[in-house]
Amino acid sequence: MPDLHALFVEPLQYQFMLRGLLISAMLGISGGMLGCVLIQRRMALMGDALAHSLLPGMGIAYLLFGAGVWALFGGALVAGLLAVVGTSLLGRLTRLKEDAAFGALFILFFAVGVAIVSMARTRVRVDLLHFLFGSILGVSSLDLWLAWAVSTATLVAFALFYRHILLETFDAGFYRATGRRGDIVHYGLLALVVLNLVAALQALGVVLALGVFLLPAATATLWFARWGRTLALSAALGVVGSCLGLFASYWLHIPSGPAIVAMLGVFFVVSVVVAPRSGLRKR
């Protein structure tokens, strides 16, 4: 019988663990819900690209303003929104399809970002790994407040615009036929994705942040045939998986980002094998 007290209670005496659990739980909920939307809109990889494109904004902000939370948050936010707007402009003004435009911009942004962070390193000590994979040790109380604001905003948006989001995702044409603007829903969702990614950066880093969005959502779609239940399960998985992952990172002394994503990955792989809608067992 493992000592539950030692496993789950003792880590909580450390403030960084408490903060990490709080931020993981909050972003697990909102990320899990947004992930469902991204998956149903076939934007999973686009979300990944978006996460990578945040790096140059953080790098530039770091060079200009130092490692303050607001600077990094603002820099990443600006970079993310630029990537969204740039993609939309490329899609409209050129022959590029949206995914090609996103792919091209994101790899460009990411390369510039790595270059900028490396330049910064020659002047001050910055760890590129920290930006890429996050560090739960660095979560400040300001990070917590930001995550709280962002995840609350996401929950409120889902509550207020539930039908709008569902209908625009399921049948954009029909949504427009009811006289409403689908592009507002689309860009509103993208803005929420950018905000959640930025809020998750400190704990997870640009490369792994989207794992908290996509893995719970992909897992949940394997279980339920109803939208509301899928959203709820995805949010629940986001919370449980992130928190368990964080404990695992404490027990095994591995970085928090990979531990969380790996834990969510366990749920996903198990579900692929046993879940009713997976389709694997029918073969």
């Binding site: 149903q40 209908l167 399921f170 049948d171 029909f174 779609t221 339920f224 045939a225 109803r226 939208w227 239940r229 899928t230």
Partner: peptide, 11 residues
């Protein structure tokens, strides 16, 4: 898409 017949008609 995770939607039932009724939920689509409700749209």
């Amino acid at each position: 898409f995770p939607a039932t017949v009724r939920s689509v008609v409700e749209q």
